[in-house]
């Protein structure tokens, strides 16, 4: 299609559509360096004042730390819960394992607005609203399906022969799991870790229902801030969030590359 007149027309169209797709994310970076008091683009002057404002904003900083801790706890718990579950479903093949897999991944099918409301109603009577425990459980509801899916695929792709070889060499089942199955699942575990962390760290809608003035996360705080005033402070927080995401993706890429070289 090189010599075709539709070719350059197509290219310009695709270029413009890509611009449309990426514009809102790209725009956040220059705005975060704005020297203006209100949101304007292009900014009339440049400064780091909104990063300073962010560091001085104790609510935002506390929310950031809460998000970080929450994502870490949720990620660790997701792995602790989903690794045995995936083993039971993929390796033990108990009756109805397919049904169980569908049931445990079903929360992803519900719109988060509905799921958030449903959880709110239960957690309100259990006194779990605006508590760290409540947030952890709420996030687990949506991170566990991702973790279970990724880990099950990873385990299902492993040949049984290595585990059989280990047991024939005298390893008891738990040792087979620890010394052979688990290390061979490493790429899946890394992927699940990153996914759970990002999902938890970025979650807004369900979290909105579960947070309160006492306990809030960065995306929720950001949401409330934009709701009341869309100033460049949001841009600096957004940059922080984007950099966080890039960092996680890069770590995964690094370790995945490493583990791939390691295993295959």
């Amino acid at each position: 299609m090189e010599d075709n007149p539709t070719s350059w027309f197509m290219r310009v169209t695709v270029g413009l559509l890509f611009l449309f797709l990426l514009a809102p994310v790209l725009l956040v970076f220059p705005i975060s360096f704005s020297g203006d008091r209100v949101l304007a683009f292009p900014p009339s002057s440049w400064s780091l004042r909104w990063y300073e404002a962010l560091l001085g904003n104790s609510v935002m900083m506390r929310a950031f730390l809460t998000s970080l801790g929450l994502a870490a706890v949720v990620t660790v718990l997701s792995l602790i819960i989903a690794i045995p579950a995936s083993y039971a479903i993929v390796r033990l093949k108990v009756r109805g394992s397919e049904f169980l897999f569908n049931l445990f991944t079903a929360p992803l099918l519900l719109p988060t607005i509905v799921l958030g409301l449903a959880i709110l109603m239960i957690f309100a009577s259990a006194g779990l609203l605006a508590t760290f425990t409540g947030l952890v459980i709420g996030h687990l509801v949506i991170t566990l399906p991702y973790a279970l899916r990724v880990l099950s695929v990873s385990l299902g792709n492993l040949s049984l022969a290595c585990e059989e070889a280990a047991s024939s060499l005298g390893a008891k089942p738990l040792i087979v799991f620890r010394k052979v199955t688990l290390p061979m699942m490493a790429p899946g575990i890394v992927a699940a870790t990153a996914l759970c962390f990002l999902v938890s760290f970025d979650e807004v809608v369900i979290t909105l229902f579960l947070t309160g003035p006492r306990m809030t996360t960065l995306p929720v705080e950001l949401f409330h801030h934009v709701e009341s005033q869309a100033d460049p402070l949001v841009a600096s927080v957004s940059v922080l969030l984007i950099l966080m995401t890039i960092a996680v993706v890069m770590i995964v890429d690094r370790t995945m590359g490493l583990t791939k070289a390691f295993v295959k």
Binding site: P24, V25, L26, L27, F41, P219, V226, A230, T245
Partner: peptide, 29 residues
């Protein structure tokens, strides 16, 4: 290009909406 397409998925909806607020504001670009 595929990475470019997927990357917005990894960015919070709040951040992307904020970007649109900046773009579509009354005196915006």
């Amino acid at each position: 290009l595929t990475v470019l397409v997927i990357s917005p998925l990894l960015t919070s909806a709040v951040v992307r909406t904020y970007g649109w607020i900046a773009l579509l504001a009354e005196q915006g670009p």
